[in-house]
Design a protein around this nucleic acid. Sequence first.
DNA 1: GTTTAATTTTGGTCTAAGTCAAATTCCCGA
DNA 2: TCGGGAATTTGACTTAGACCAAAATTAAAC
Lengths: 254, 254
Amino acid sequence: MLQNPNLPHRKTSCFSCGLRELCLPVGLEEDEINTLDSLINLWCKIRRGGYLYRAGMDFQSIYIVRSGFFKTYVLHEDGREQVTGFHMPGEMLGLEAISTDVHTCHAVALENSEICEIPFTRLEEIGRDIPSLMHHFHKIMSRKIVHNHEAIVLLGGMKARERLSTLLLNLSDRFAKLGYSSSNFNLCMTREEIGSYLGLKLETVSRAFSRLQKDGLIKINSKSVQLNNISWLKQRSRGNFHVTEKIVEGAELQ
Amino acid sequence: MLQNPNLPHRKTSCFSCGLRELCLPVGLEEDEINTLDSLINLWCKIRRGGYLYRAGMDFQSIYIVRSGFFKTYVLHEDGREQVTGFHMPGEMLGLEAISTDVHTCHAVALENSEICEIPFTRLEEIGRDIPSLMHHFHKIMSRKIVHNHEAIVLLGGMKARERLSTLLLNLSDRFAKLGYSSSNFNLCMTREEIGSYLGLKLETVSRAFSRLQKDGLIKINSKSVQLNNISWLKQRSRGNFHVTEKIVEGAELQ
DNA sequence: GTTTAATTTTGGTCTAAGTCAAATTCCCGA
DNA sequence: TCGGGAATTTGACTTAGACCAAAATTAAAC
């Protein structure tokens, strides 16, 4: 159907793509690395607001975020958008399209980003020669399912502040894994996008932020967040709101 | 960690497993079918209430429902259970465990069931020799992700009656694909389990059922459901509640 | 750097769904 | 066939979060 208008693609090595360490940490032989290099020979830049793919586009490749930040969302019949995920460097996008050979969600860059493109048929071919690579790919797909389950638990049962705490902790973890601070980071999504992901209205998100700040758990300054006490926040994300009292009167926040 | 206590396993052929048509509809050569037969040589019966696997158990195999009905759920810290899916014959279970080699959710039979077991390492091995089989497996995993997205859309934005309508239509579709009636079927799950899946309390589910019945869209008799007008129900599942009026006064229900 | 537009916060009301409780029906085992 | 426990329905009340609106802050465009 539609074709991805992003161009031009430029060749680069597997190393400069940053792919190996981030996404395919399997023990490979020297010649296997070369094979792998030939696999991931495309990348492109996408600027803030640009689409990596749109629902309805033909599926050709899966993508790995090299730098930047993406959101994926599906569009309801009535025009409402449901954010299905936020995506950081090292994460794979487009896996949902394998089932029908057509993308079923939209992927848009929330800041200027770079992505690696992996033609999927090439991945399957090379996977035949490098079983550990194929197996690692299966793990990545499976992890996506686990993440979705976590989102379902969040949406199915949690209260507003639990949802927000859970998201903040999740982002915190992922920033930490990338070597960034786990307690200080910038949200590059709007309150509305956060709300869509959490199944809440933007006003509710804003109030939840305010409340967490009032309780001394976080500090927010529009887009920048500081987590004052991650372990207390974890309690909160599990519904233990009664510990709040202790927090308010509690010891200094580090 | 834990081991699956289900036993004994018995050998059977691929044909009797019913696997070929349901789950792996790929064009295979004769010798490939034999290879495949050697892959799927285990099955077992699980009676109503029995567990196929539990969270924490080692991952060895993926499973295909041969007959019966399963639910999968994850357990929250506070003991709340979140149903993540209902599973009918032909559907694959256990995919979420590939990522960590440990199951992260529970799978329990809602009625007496039979399942096929596929040792996952064998599947990966044989997939190397039969690329179309491997590719089909990737499609199945991908479809799981799409289904999860659908659940996320449901939980993230829909009203109670939209959610229930969506579930009923989804079950209807899946029964139809199995050759059963799309308008008359039995729910083998409780209102509480439905509620957990839909992110609602059981009372709300019950009221939603009653309301859909009052509006003439369905007929319920405890566990048995009759969908009177699927296209109107589809409108409902998309939030068009105003068509209700027409339905109530509307023409005869077929 | 100023103007404008977009985003965020906060307040006030309303409603869908949660909670509590009681009545009814269903279903399983003796 | 009967009895008892579970599941379901329905009612009355409460509440978290949606909805509406206005002010305040931030970001973007010129």
